Amino acid sequence: MTSLWTGRRVRLRGIEPDNWSAFMRFAVDEERLGDLLQPPRSAEGFHTWAKEQAAATSDGDCFVLAIEAVGTGKIVGSIGSHHSDRVRTGSSTASRSALISNKAAWPGR
């Protein structure tokens, strides 16, 4: 392993503007889970979001990263930390999310 962010099978990395179509596919998988209701978004909406994420700076506690398969370079999911209260309250309370969209990589498959 050459980096804290790279393992044998996946690498965590920043989102690039051209990753928008992968995140559009992920939205379909999230919808099927049934635990989060998001209104439909246009392809341009995902494209704009990906461009914004690519240019965003992290405050250290809130971030979204792409999960990329080392062998193929394909984005298989995302991981993020959202709504951190550490700066405001001094506690380390935060909302976290993780999505592995590659169904073949899900446990039990």
Rank of each mutant, 00 (worst) to 15 (best):
D29N: 08
R32S: 12
S78A: 09
R96V: 05
L33K: 01
V10P: 03
L12G: 01
A69K: 03
Q38V: 01
N102I: 09
D35L: 03
E44S: 14
I15V: 15
R9W: 10
K103L: 12
S81N: 11
S95Q: 14
S81R: 05
L33F: 15
V76C: 03
N19F: 03
L37P: 02
T48I: 13
A66I: 02
E16K: 02
A98G: 01
N19G: 07
W5T: 12
K51L: 06
D59W: 05
M1N: 06
S58A: 08
D59H: 02
S101G: 15
N19E: 13
G34L: 03
W5F: 15
E52P: 02
A98W: 11
G90T: 14
W5S: 13
W106F: 07
A105T: 05
A50D: 10
H47T: 00
A94Q: 08
S58G: 05
M1H: 10
D35F: 09
E31V: 05
S101C: 13
Q53F: 01
T93L: 14
A56V: 01
E68S: 01
S95F: 07
G108P: 11
L33I: 07
R25E: 08
E52A: 08
G14R: 04
S21C: 10
G73L: 14
V87M: 08
L33D: 13
L37I: 09
W20E: 09
G73E: 06
V10K: 01
E31D: 04
A104P: 00
G45F: 03
K51Y: 09
L65C: 06
R32P: 07
L36A: 05
R11I: 14
W106T: 02
S78I: 01
G7T: 13
K103E: 15
W106R: 04
K74H: 11
E52R: 02
A22P: 03
A22R: 01
F23P: 02
G7Q: 08
G34M: 10
K74I: 15
F63S: 04
L36K: 06
A43G: 14
H83M: 09
F26D: 11
I67L: 10
L99I: 15
S92Y: 09
G7H: 10
V70M: 06
V76Y: 00
E44V: 13
V10Q: 00
G34F: 07
A27S: 15
N102A: 15
D35C: 05
R13E: 08
S42G: 11
S84N: 05
M24Y: 07
T72S: 15
C62V: 04
G90V: 14
Q53H: 06
F46Q: 04
G77D: 12
